[in-house]
Design a protein around this nucleic acid. Sequence first.
DNA 1: TTTTAACCGAGACGGTACGTCCGGTCTTCAC
DNA 2: GTGAAGACCGGACGTACCGTCTCGGTTAAAA
Lengths: 209, 209, 209, 209
Amino acid sequence: MQSRIPARRATGRPRSAAADAAILAATREALVELGWSKLTLVDVACRAGVAKTTLYRRWAGKNELVVDAVAELFDALRLPDRGSLAADVEGVVLQFAAILARPEARSGLMAVVAESTRDEALRDRIRASIVDRQKRLVLEGRSRAQARGELPAETDPEATARTVDLIFDVVAGAVVHRTLVSAEPADEEWVRGFTRVLLLGLAGAVGPA
Amino acid sequence: MQSRIPARRATGRPRSAAADAAILAATREALVELGWSKLTLVDVACRAGVAKTTLYRRWAGKNELVVDAVAELFDALRLPDRGSLAADVEGVVLQFAAILARPEARSGLMAVVAESTRDEALRDRIRASIVDRQKRLVLEGRSRAQARGELPAETDPEATARTVDLIFDVVAGAVVHRTLVSAEPADEEWVRGFTRVLLLGLAGAVGPA
Amino acid sequence: MQSRIPARRATGRPRSAAADAAILAATREALVELGWSKLTLVDVACRAGVAKTTLYRRWAGKNELVVDAVAELFDALRLPDRGSLAADVEGVVLQFAAILARPEARSGLMAVVAESTRDEALRDRIRASIVDRQKRLVLEGRSRAQARGELPAETDPEATARTVDLIFDVVAGAVVHRTLVSAEPADEEWVRGFTRVLLLGLAGAVGPA
Amino acid sequence: MQSRIPARRATGRPRSAAADAAILAATREALVELGWSKLTLVDVACRAGVAKTTLYRRWAGKNELVVDAVAELFDALRLPDRGSLAADVEGVVLQFAAILARPEARSGLMAVVAESTRDEALRDRIRASIVDRQKRLVLEGRSRAQARGELPAETDPEATARTVDLIFDVVAGAVVHRTLVSAEPADEEWVRGFTRVLLLGLAGAVGPA
DNA sequence: TTTTAACCGAGACGGTACGTCCGGTCTTCAC
DNA sequence: GTGAAGACCGGACGTACCGTCTCGGTTAAAA
């Protein structure tokens, strides 16, 4: 991951590289057991076998730490090639739902999003580490669908960006809302119904199966 | 709103009705200025001109208080009859986006959702006070569209419930994600694009305007 | 006991006489179990089967209540006629020590004395209810000793008052200090030694038995 | 004074030595202005320019803090050599009375004694820090008097301890009672009378001057 | 017999202190 | 210079009690 506090010195005892991983893992562990609001840096430091000072040297605070800890979770997402746009969407949405079913992702993600409403830098960090990083999935899926002829080609790069953003908001938003707000599982049945609406629209979806 | 602590006696000094409104208003005010994580009950009590104990007598904690304070915001949503399903959707989505543009809604809503991932009772409270309460909009819009012939009739009540839930997750999720995670405004242009996808599906939407 | 809150009306429902006794008894009971600093008026009211309001109607606060509750304890003191000044002193000192061995007297008495250092009215109440009330014992003992010829007669009333006050301070002070500060029992042996010093003085006491 | 929390490590930031003195001085200042029952630890911390947590790290509570703050007052007592037992007693009793005339001693001392009736550890702390510490005065005065031939020598160490304890209870008790309970000044006249009784006994004292 | 005024219980109210906890900073020693 | 340890200041937490107040209902003396 990128350096979190800008300046780095070349002299003196170098920072333990293992500490970074241990701290992020400890953060996720604490998120599972305690949730965001009861997670304390002293507890994370203790779990990671590290002094509180070490955390503050590497991250500016709890929010930044949790963003990094959560961001790693979403890097596991892969877009499988299942032969059709519908199948590809279903595949990646199920993976996304599986990640959001993990408690460290559930409480961590929403909490930092909530904090980011009042913190420009945190918002940027979330976009860079999580949101923009995963738009690759939409781009790749769209390319495949265009190659297969399931979607028309699009030449205007600005319009492309708008479309990708829109699709990402619809897909990610629906899964997050289903999982965290409605608090119902995004299981296979729901994913099928969602994909149908996404591809065919309301009229097409509620019509004949 | 409904009484928060169930049992009420007819004896003793009755609770001040004015205090409730003052406290919820103060909570929203503090959310605007401080955000959720820096909002403290002692500050809310001070702003409301009320003792801290009065808060604890009526709400179990910060989370429950914020849920009630935020829930009131969404009661202002109305479904305008603009003559077509697309126009109706655009109208209500713009209202929803306007509410989510207010800082008290932004940080408050996501924060309690994050907390609810580890608190069953809080999750129920959110569903009862916010989510289920606003599903009326989907139900009403769907009825109108069916009356207009824009959507086919649906007789199975269970399938109806599934469809309503799905649509709610897609609409609310997309707007929330656009507004809070992508942190871009859900302006008229975006709402038009979203409504197009919702009604026509991906293939229909990205095709000819 | 005297009325504690000055004004009384002659009309309307009269105050329950039983409540007074119940409250004072409950106060002593709470002193035994909790001590002065953890004694709360709510708890006293509850033990006495009375509302908190009732306490505040009759006493100005915790201090006044405890003074009245403790004062009753010392009214049981009697001066036995044992035939000699030494025997009389020993008898009454043992009674006094027995009262000070009771936990409600121990913590209650010292606490209100401590409070009285910053409360003129409370000091007066203590003197009236406890101190001056028990000086009768010194006066009576002195009269008997003079009648027996153990002590010379004293005609000057002012000098008499000074002497009585001094003896009272020496006797009461020594027993209180032994019991509460040194925290050793004022048993028969100690009382004999003390009486010997009181009657004969240091030189006489430490000399031949 | 001695370290209050036994174990100390050699690692970590050491405790500020200046804080101890500032806290004890602030405690005495607050005792003067507020008395024991209205003294709050948050106020003491504020006066001492110290965080509340620092107090709780070093003392278990209000009682222990006040004992230490008051104990320092009595360390100023000195036994002047005035040439006779009577003069020595008068001298030290006047000093003692002067200390008890200070408001921080008045309310502090009696309050902790009252609390100690329900707290074994506190009682021990008082004995160690205040009572036993000042018995040196009795011992020294007695030695001088014996050297002068005013008092007979005493060889049995157990009998000596009993006598010292008794004299201490009589002297300290009488002054405390005069000052705090009777609430009259222990001025020179009273001290002369008291010393006369102490040395000569009741019969000798009330007889010819 | 009816007033009627003071009583009583219950409990909410504005305050305030409690003792604990955490966030961030600092100071010290060891590596 | 890094890292561990832990004391430091500041301040919110949720609880408890204070003393006041507002109720509805009771009760005994005055009319």
